[in-house]
Design a protein around this nucleic acid. Structure first.
Lengths: 196, 196, 196, 196
DNA sequence: GATGAATGAGTTTTCATTCAT
DNA sequence: CATGAATGAAAACTCATTCAT
């Protein structure tokens, strides 16, 4: 019984992994169910045992995506040096961002949120959690350095997240900018936002 | 003769205006040619007199979109106070960004660039022009204030653009953040980037 | 212009004729759109220029069917001898009734009405007109023979129609009953209902 | 052993009861095997232990339906007053006939018979038995009243059955006609057919 | 006996594109 | 220049049936 449920869950994830790949490469609406099926190694019909329809798959992918961001933020929370960790993460994103990458999926999600209310709601709910988490992290980081709490904490968080999301966009428009070239500027900018 | 050409151009723009609307609301792949035709007030078949196929319309829209960004930057170039102008522009974008807005189109373009090489090339070409223009503008602005040229000009431009594009994303994920709440932080961040 | 509209209407009827055939032979839900298309001599996609979906075709067929019954009743209205005309019509139906016949379509419609509210409404609306028409016809027929108006006109009409519809059913369950064998009984029954 | 066979039969009927419900509400081709399974409270696969395929279930349902009519006629056979019993039965049917009712199933069967030769054969075989039974019953009834045997017995039976089946159709097209409104007419019609 | 995961052909429907008028 | 009828391939989704467990 336990095994069967596990098996079902594994099959589900098999679909989601395949779907994430397909969506990254062809977009939510460019990827067909039969592509998904082929990529997931199962029949088209069988996917419908696990997901009610294509939109449900999209929703699950978005949820995964949101969870990933939250996990990233949670990992930051326990870093010794938050500033440094943030810059490192920004750097991690600065690689070729086209079709295969996660940036592609992020942008797809954002574009979809623009027209799909269900996706929009998920994105916004996730973002609320994320920015609260970042704010806590910042407060904690500042406390660890003996800095006073920030009155404009929300605004600073917003700008910091904007910087991160912006770098995702930059990765499409102007990829391969050497990290070290902008690391210094990024560091000074973040320092300005976090440590003053 | 002249008039005829003008007429043709006007018809073209009629299509592009309609297309921009449709694409904003439904996405490149969600909008059908007959929707475009209806919105443009002409027959489906006739659109093919002006554009070879749907992709050509997408390309034209992307080009327009890129040109719009360039025009914005050009307008900044002649501003008295660059810093203030940048913040003002950032504020202009901070409104509900869902389906009807320009942010929606920007994200659609970026997502499409991720999988469509032709679109990617256009986006990158446009971005190259844009960031050069911004760099010039910054240099000019600094000169007007008697500040020295920047050694890390490119990196700073990159970060500034990232900030802007990031705010576009934020508009989807967390809309309605009051401008005045973040204007101060934005100002200080830009000041840090432009005036030091 | 006139011609074009006519052409459209002709195309529509082309679809409806083909559909009626297909539905008779395979049922509303047994006949596929591609069968319809093949029978109508046009592409599947093009049928959707004329009908929003399959249900709309079904509805149009039902409407036709209802109109046919009404037309039959109207033709009876102007007969010299109504009783004789009714018996003649009953006889016309007493032929092999399986797949190709109109009885098949009638039963299909009735079965569909049982679960499809839109069809049910059409069937009932049509029936209301039909039974009123029959009642008028009977009254006229009796007047022509100098008989008094009937107090139980509605009930008698109902029974007469039931007889007719019943013979349609009988045609499936026990076809090929020789008309002359039942004509006498039918005549006496109708006489009992119409002339006393 | 006996118990096991009974158990199997019970399971069979469990399926048939569920199937009858589903077919009534959605039609033979509108009801899916998984709907049947859910309604029968067993797995899809298990239904195939009892029935070779869906058509076999349809056939069994048709057989049941036919048997039901035969049973009704048999019950009439032992009534004191056949005329009265017939009218009573006609009345029993005169209730709202849409999706849930038995009329719905009857019409479904008849429509199916129109295209499915196996069903047609069953329907006709059943009908032969039924109309012979009715003829016997009528003869017996007349004998009990001291009336002479009928030369046109078959034709009269046919018309009587047509009346009954027709009232089933009327129940769809014009439901809710008060029984007492037509009982008198029905009685006089049947009297005319049975007692003269 | 009993399950339900798995299949793949089939369903309705949409859509970019063409072309005769 | 302008139309929209026409196509056919492809999309999302369904379903009877099978079979390993």
């Amino acid at each position: 019984m336990k095994t069967e449920q596990d098996r079902g869950e594994a099959r589900c994830n098999q679909v989601l992994d395949a779907a994430a790949d397909c969506f990254r490469q062809r977009g939510f609406h460019g990827a067909s169910m039969s592509e998904l099926a082929k990529a997931a190694g199962m029949s088209v019909g069988h996917i419908y045992h696990y997901f009610e329809n294509k939109e449900a798959i999209i929703a699950a992918i978005v949820e995964r995506d949101v969870a990933e961001i939250l996990a990233l933020l949670d990992s930051l929370h326990d870093e010794e040096d938050i500033l440094q960790a943030l810059i490192r993460e920004a750097g991690n994103n600065l690689e070729e961002a086209t079709c295969g990458s996660d940036d592609a999926l992020q942008l797809e999600v954002l574009a979809e949120a623009t027209r799909n209310p269900k996706v929009l709601a998920m994105v916004r709910d996730g973002d609320r959690l994320a920015r609260n988490r970042l704010a806590e992290t910042i407060t904690k980081g500042r406390a660890m350095r003996g800095l006073a709490p920030l009155a404009d904490l929300e605004a600073r968080s917003e700008i910091i997240i904007a910087l991160f999301e912006g770098l995702t966009c930059r990765n499409v428009r102007n990829p391969g900018v050497p990290l070290d070239a902008i690391a210094t500027v990024l560091r000074s900018t973040l320092q300005n936002l976090l440590e003053t």
